[in-house]
Design a binder for these strands. Sequence first.
DNA 1: ATTTAATATGCAATCGATTGTGTAAAGAAC
DNA 2: GTTCTTTACACAATCGATTGCATATTAAAT
Lengths: 343, 343
Amino acid sequence: MKRITIKDIAKTLGYSIGTVSKALADSHEISEVTKVEIQKFADENGYQYNQYAKLLRTGKTNIIGMIVPKIGNSFFSQILEGIEEKMSKTVYNLIIMQSYDDPVRELNLLETLFKKGADAIIIAPTGNCISLDYLRKLKKDGIPVVLIDRINYAISTHKIGIDNFRAVYQGISHLISMGCMDILFISSMAKGVVEERRRGYLQCLNDSGIQINYENLLSIDVEKNGENSREELIKYFAQRIQENTLPDAIFTASDQLTYQVLEVLHALNIEVPKIIALLGFANFTFSNLFSPPLSCIVQPSKEMGSKAFALIEEILDKPDRQESSSFEDIKLPVKMEIRRSTN
Amino acid sequence: MKRITIKDIAKTLGYSIGTVSKALADSHEISEVTKVEIQKFADENGYQYNQYAKLLRTGKTNIIGMIVPKIGNSFFSQILEGIEEKMSKTVYNLIIMQSYDDPVRELNLLETLFKKGADAIIIAPTGNCISLDYLRKLKKDGIPVVLIDRINYAISTHKIGIDNFRAVYQGISHLISMGCMDILFISSMAKGVVEERRRGYLQCLNDSGIQINYENLLSIDVEKNGENSREELIKYFAQRIQENTLPDAIFTASDQLTYQVLEVLHALNIEVPKIIALLGFANFTFSNLFSPPLSCIVQPSKEMGSKAFALIEEILDKPDRQESSSFEDIKLPVKMEIRRSTN
DNA sequence: ATTTAATATGCAATCGATTGTGTAAAGAAC
DNA sequence: GTTCTTTACACAATCGATTGCATATTAAAT
């Protein structure tokens, strides 16, 4: 059951290889009758062009490279799900890589993607300067780059994310409306998105006339495997218990942090929401099963994925594209799910 | 910054294209001096062979196709994570596809993978006969197939999974040791793995001298989006409440079922573990955050992924491979995490 | 009837590698 | 010194497509 090639068709039907190729490409150079004959024959015999031969000639690999921090993270796996759903029927192929939030590794992966000839790149970047530089270079080489989730305005390219300022603003508003006054904001190291989220936090406090306590801005380094950050959190809360300065609410600015903080609060027997209310970003499907059921800000992850692919498909399918100067900056709406952890 | 080709090297160094190719392949036909010269030059100028030109000649695509029910499912995304971790530095590329547990779609995807020229396939199969037939055909065509998670003995090929019988047996033992006598076993439609898990359940009851009640074997069709199965579960438990025949424990034979059953029990105000103890397969990292903290059987998902890739790499890298008649059947150990839901 | 233009097809180079065959030059054997 | 091997390289076909150019046939224009 070998695959049939253009050559086979040519031989059987008595045309030249070039004619068959053009007929299948629906070229105007070929007569209607011949085109129909050839196309019909190709169809009936299950002809499938060899994409590798084609790309060798055309230079298009149809490969879309994707770099995320960690696939196992529900949020990113849902994005992936959205991409795959749209992509599986197209000619495009996805190569997925994990940066583990390590800038060096990220740069490495980008180089690998370049070597593999990726036609486009989707990335949730660490925000590291060198990687951003490399992304700019790729753009100049004509490779479209789409930033997903971690949008970064230091680079002008397509972006798909949420309105982080607004999402956090709404979240903090909610906490305030539940009577919280001393809200701890926990995020990873500040760059790009985190910065925006932090602004949402500060602005909301301001607008609500709450005195800002800069001690309430906590940065946790989650770059590694999670063990360090857990210890750091434990130490931090132990200290605040000792000082008797526990906040009355916590807002966590990423999925991993949300889970980890909840776990640490459990470990330290700090009751949620009785002692501390908890609200944060979280994309796990069953947040309602948590103890307590978790209030969270859910991002439209799957949609982000499908939008990212749709955008790339549109760009790549355009006949003679050139580095455009206009870039999409799509912001999708988030969903705030209120449950017991903030009640 | 164009990529340098074998032709460029040949021209610059004054050798023929063929010589350069052979030198880079470390052929014995080329003198040591020349080889060193060419290899050094290639290294210094960052030569990277064009894998598409190569595969056009050799027929190897270096593409590994993977089909899982759903990427967003933690279990499968962790498998993916394990694969990517090993693969990112190799020449291989992964194409991921989702079957949504739909046999028709699965067959379709397999055909697509074949068209794309996948060199090997990793799959968590639905178990459908037609797909299995197709897998057999692929095997005959020389494409190695590795079954992951959903191992199925109806097809003789490589398999990576767990000892399902034993895992469930241990789980049920635990429930019995906690004093449960009336254990409901919930699974998806029985085939392959599910059958084995069910055997573990039955055998354990038998060995413990507990009378088997076949009413306690519940099959839920989880093929669709999850809405149907939730309704089905709600109806089922409502009925058993009415009949006053609630079991004292439940064993759920898949991740999704575990979460969904827990959710349904919450919705119906059936206290866990007070009224019903719950134990099941679950691979979410934060099962301890659930209400109540969830006892579960954790599969070594990441390891399954890395093992699967290692196996495939070994097979594909073997010089002249032919359809071997000996197949790996790897069973990795599971971890049982006991928490409050069974206490 | 001759020239011109349009149409339909064949031809051949090309993409970047691999690989079998051919062939000088050097060394070994007699 | 002639013949036979080796050794080290060049040459060219090939994988399966795409595409510009050449060309034969027919139709249109004069």
